[in-house]
Structure formats: structure tokens, C-alpha cells
């Protein structure tokens, strides 16, 4: 899922400084699961913004809402129910949601309340780790299911590098060297010979280096 983290309150207050009425909009998708922008977080941020503005002597009206998702046209259409009730939308969805509102609501002012961090999962309760870089050309079948693009600091295709020390990455002794993990795992699943395959020079266009990407499925288009 997409992992996000709420922006500092001061930064958000600065965004909405000219607004008297704000629609604080949560999303029931990924940001609910990672506790960054679901209904509960909407409730908390609404309180904080009201308190912050009250302290400044400029109370703000916060309208709270949450959409099933903010990355689909049909759900963004649901924004109509709050028409006329706000000066700006403060979205707690990932950057996709903010972009969708901007795309589909040309006259609506929209601000991001979270920083969209990465694609990851919950390693333990309250801890999320990056697992996928969305590079558009998956090679996990060659690496035992562990992604060197996302989890190697250099995104090396033929690792490990000389900075791998005691199975840790040179950038931080708390970070596993994913190539060590790949090596160990391929050995455990009797596929160690895959380490000998030399990965060719990679075309990074699919990773976004060729501009914004899109997926088109003709079979779904009527």
C-alpha cells in the first residue's frame, strides 16, 4: 500500500491561513490502513487545526469528511455533497488523491495534509518499511522476491556493493543489505545459481524517467 505521514501542523496551518472554512477530507484506502489519513486521523487533525487557529485568535470552521477512495473519478464526484461549505479542501489522501481532486475539480483549491512516503507494508505495529519502488519492470523472480530497486540504497542490479558489511548497508548499520538477504534467501530455496546471472544495463523509462506513466487496458474500456 501507499504509506503516508501527516505533515507538521505548522506547515498545514500555513497552507490554510487564508481560509475560514476547510473541508478536511480523509480517504478510506491505503492512508486509513497506515493510520495517516483515515477517519480517525481526520478527527485528530480537525481538532488540532481548530485549536491552532483558536490560539491565533482566528477560528476556522472544519468540515470533516471521508471518501471511500480519492483515486477514482466516481468517488471524487462525491465532493459535490459539500459544495459551498468550504474555501479549500485539505486532503489527507496520498498525492494521487490530491492530484485527482485538482484534475477533476478545476475551481477547487486543494492542499495536501500528508507527505506521501513510499510503497510499503507494516513490518510491526506502528512501523512501516519500503518494499517496492513502483519501477514498472519487476525483477523479483530473479531476486528471491526481495526488491533491490527499493531496498538497496543504490538500487544495484548486480549487488552487493563493497559497502555491504556484516549483512548491513554502509548508509546505516540498522539497514539490512538487501543483496545479502537475496543471497541468503536464494541459497535457502536452492536457487543460489541465480546470483551468477548478470543483469543487463537497465532501461529506467518504465520507472518514470520517460515522463508520467500510464497503464491502458483496452479490454476494460467500453
Amino acid at each position: 500500500m501507499i504509506i503516508a505521514e501527516r505533515k507538521p501542523i505548522g506547515e498545514i496551518l500555513d497552507m490554510i491561513r487564508d481560509c475560514d472554512r476547510v473541508l478536511l477530507l480523509g480517504c478510506r484506502g491505503c492512508v486509513t490502513v497506515c493510520s495517516a489519513g483515515g477517519e480517525r486521523e481526520v478527527e485528530i487533525l480537525a481538532s488540532l487545526l481548530k485549536l491552532g487557529r483558536k490560539k491565533e485568535g482566528r477560528p476556522v470552521e472544519i468540515v470533516e469528511g471521508t471518501l471511500v477512495r480519492q483515486c477514482d473519478r466516481e468517488y471524487i464526484a462525491g465532493l459535490a455533497q459539500w459544495d459551498g461549505q468550504y474555501d479549500a479542501v485539505l486532503s489527507m489522501a496520498c498525492g494521487v488523491g490530491v492530484n485527482f481532486i485538482a484534475n477533476l475539480r478545476p475551481a477547487t483549491v486543494v492542499f495536501p495534509a500528508v507527505n506521501t512516503s513510499f510503497f510499503g507494508g507494516s513490518a510491526t505495529q506502528g512501523v512501516w518499511t519500503e518494499q517496492c519502488a513502483g519501477c514498472g519492470n519487476c525483477i523479483l523472480h530473479l531476486t528471491g522476491g526481495l526488491c533491490p530497486v527499493a531496498r538497496c540504497a543504490k538500487s544495484l542490479m548486480n549487488g552487493p556493493c563493497g559497502g555491504s558489511q556484516n549483512a548491513r548497508c554502509e548508509i546505516n548499520p540498522n539497514v539490512d543489505c538487501v543483496w545479502q538477504l537475496i543471497h541468503d534467501r536464494l541459497g535457502r530455496i536452492n536457487r543460489a545459481e541465480q546470483m551468477l546471472q548478470i543483469a543487463p544495463i537497465r532501461d529506467w523509462q518504465s520507472a518514470g524517467h520517460g515522463g508520467p506513466r500510464q497503464v491502458v487496458r483496452d479490454d476494460l474500456i467500453v
Binding site: E43, I44, L48
Partner: peptide, 11 residues
């Protein structure tokens, strides 16, 4: 107790 409950007390 939720964070929001504690914040509401201040509100």
C-alpha cells in the same frame, strides 16, 4: 481513550 478525546477536552 483516543487522541481525539484528549484533544476535545482542550477544545
Amino acid at each position: 481513550l483516543q487522541v481525539s478525546t484528549l484533544l476535545k477536552a482542550f477544545e
